[in-house]
Amino acid sequence: MDVVPGVDPRAPLLEVTDLHVEFRTQYGVAKAVNGANFWLSPGETLAILGESGCGKSVTAQAIMGILESPPGYITKGSIMYRGVDLLGIPEEQRRKVRANRIAMIFQDALSALNPVYTVGFQLAELFRMHRGMSRAEAKRRSIELLDQVKIPGAKDRINDYPHQFSGGMRQRVMIAMALALDPEVLIADEPTTALDVTVQAQIMGLLADLQKQRNMGLILITHDMGVVADVADRISVMYAGKVVEEAPVYDIYARPAHPYTRALLESIPRLDMKGQQLNVIRGLPPALTDVPRGCAFNPRCRYAKDACRQDPAPPAYSVAPHRTARCHFFREVLGE
């Protein structure tokens, strides 16, 4: 059953090209995403990494098509899903792509679940609205799903409300909800940030298992380099609305090609560097209403030269096969 006409199963799973998103507010235009590029294949995990406000969540919302508009507008670019540009299809088809083909889980499951409906209702709703199932059938499937995300006593908990679950269990409910309709792409926006460290590991493990079972493409949005190292295949580092570096996870940890990535890595506290001063990145990310000319990172960059302070911004240099970096001096960064 095809929710969108024109889908080509042989085309790449997801390809985001030159995506631009801006927010038009009374205080000015904030350019949240300024040309994001990345792709995703089945079974693969792509981590989108960056500080808060770098545009990673906005990118995710643009892919889902749930950007609040106004004030948010996609001004340029394309989001290709299996050969279909999601930005070019009618809203009714777009709606059917959500949850059916591309699903999303959010950071804070307590506020992301509707407080006045039972977990069962919120799960069954998906089957009833998208698959036209009867209430009984939808309920049976919902219990199965809760079992799959390893919620103990799923049958009894189906009539509980979100606030009756613990944080970790709630996030499992969120995951169950996202996986209900067997999507091909799952976007997880900071899925473990609100949880305790031990629970974080369990949730990430569960996600990884489910992804393997279903051969899903997973986009993991996070600011936590530790989480990324364990589960990601490739990493896209975002800064001020741009993907500044994209590379396989091993390469990026071994030899970052962008000064920002490098600074991020150096700012992770490490046990073998006990007693030494931690390298923090000087300054703050730019306000999105006023992004610096040239390379947006130049005011905080120790490699910055005159070329970095002038337009045009550095292009995506090909550093190695399947590897790009938006830095004029990537060779220096790599070689140091």
């Binding site: 749930i66 709606r95 059917k96 949850a99 959010f106 804070d108 992301a112 679940l113 509707n114 609205m129």
Partner: peptide, 20 residues
């Protein structure tokens, strides 16, 4: 936040507003 979730679930706008 739950409205964002409801939209991400591919529910119609009418259902998001009049039910959720």
């Amino acid at each position: 936040d739950y409205v964002r979730t409801a939209r991400a679930k591919g529910l119609t706008r009418r259902r998001v507003i009049w039910v959720h």
